[in-house]
């Protein structure tokens, strides 16, 4: 037998031997498993931090407004943010709200509520900034939405969101198509009344449910 023929039969033997095949698959699976475990250990903290920072980064802006938040960042003043779950019982069912408490120098300076609800198309997820006594809305940020681009999409613009700053939480906010006059009216996005109304409903529900508990906690 020539050398090449001997090599061929060795390769053939490898291919035909079931034990070798099984070991091969097992080794490969273990290698991949180890690689994935390594990735998990090294990257999982970063990913967790990304998820949390997505909300945390917005907290100063939602409570103090954009300009003051930038000032605070420049002065390196940091807020201490504690996430908590607040349960509210509605119609016999417990509904949990994801609430962030913002403290500065040991004193509560505001709340940020993360909530979601049905929009025109799919869910809208948003962050509401509230004053420490939960009497006024201090900011609004849309985290996730799938509304119509160019129409309902405009609820993410700063111009529309800034209407909410300073609005009282005592009464339900309503949406108008023409100029908003009273303290509880919000201008709808032109051509996207349903998206606007959905967002406002989500805010009304969350604020209505949490106003009592938050006021009690702030005391």
């Amino acid at each position: 037998m020539t050398a090449i023929q001997m090599e061929q039969s060795f390769g053939q033997r490898l291919k035909n031997s079931n034990i070798v095949q099984a070991w091969l698959v097992l080794t490969l699976a273990l290698l991949f498993g180890a690689a994935l475990a390594g990735i998990q250990i090294s990257l999982a903290p970063t990913i967790e931090a990304n998820k949390i920072n997505e909300t945390r980064q917005k907290v100063p802006e939602l409570i103090f407004g954009k300009t003051r938040a930038l000032e605070m960042a420049a002065q390196n003043k940091n807020l201490h943010v504690t996430p908590q779950f607040i349960a509210v019982e509605k119609q016999g069912k417990k509904v949990f709200y994801n609430v962030f408490k913002a403290d500065m120098d040991g004193k509560c300076v505001g709340w940020v509520v993360k909530t979601n609800g049905q929009g025109y198309a799919d869910k809208i997820e948003l962050l509401i900034g509230l004053a420490p006594d939960a009497e006024t809305i201090t900011g609004l940020f849309i985290l996730d939405q799938k509304e119509t681009p160019g129409l309902g999409n405009k609820i993410v613009t700063e111009k529309w969101r800034s209407q909410f700053i300073g609005k009282p939480t005592g009464t339900r906010l309503t949406v108008t198509k023409t100029g908003a006059v009273t303290d509880t009216e919000i201008n709808a996005v032109t051509g996207a009344t349903i998206s606007s109304r959905s967002a406002i409903n989500i805010i009304n529900t969350a604020v209505g449910d949490l106003k009592g508990p938050l006021t009690a906690k702030a005391k």
């Binding site: 994935l36 990735i39 990257l43 990913i47 990304n50």
Partner: peptide
Amino acid sequence: TIADRFLAAY
């Protein structure tokens, strides 16, 4: 999976 985790992290 590796590509997905990298994207989620960075």
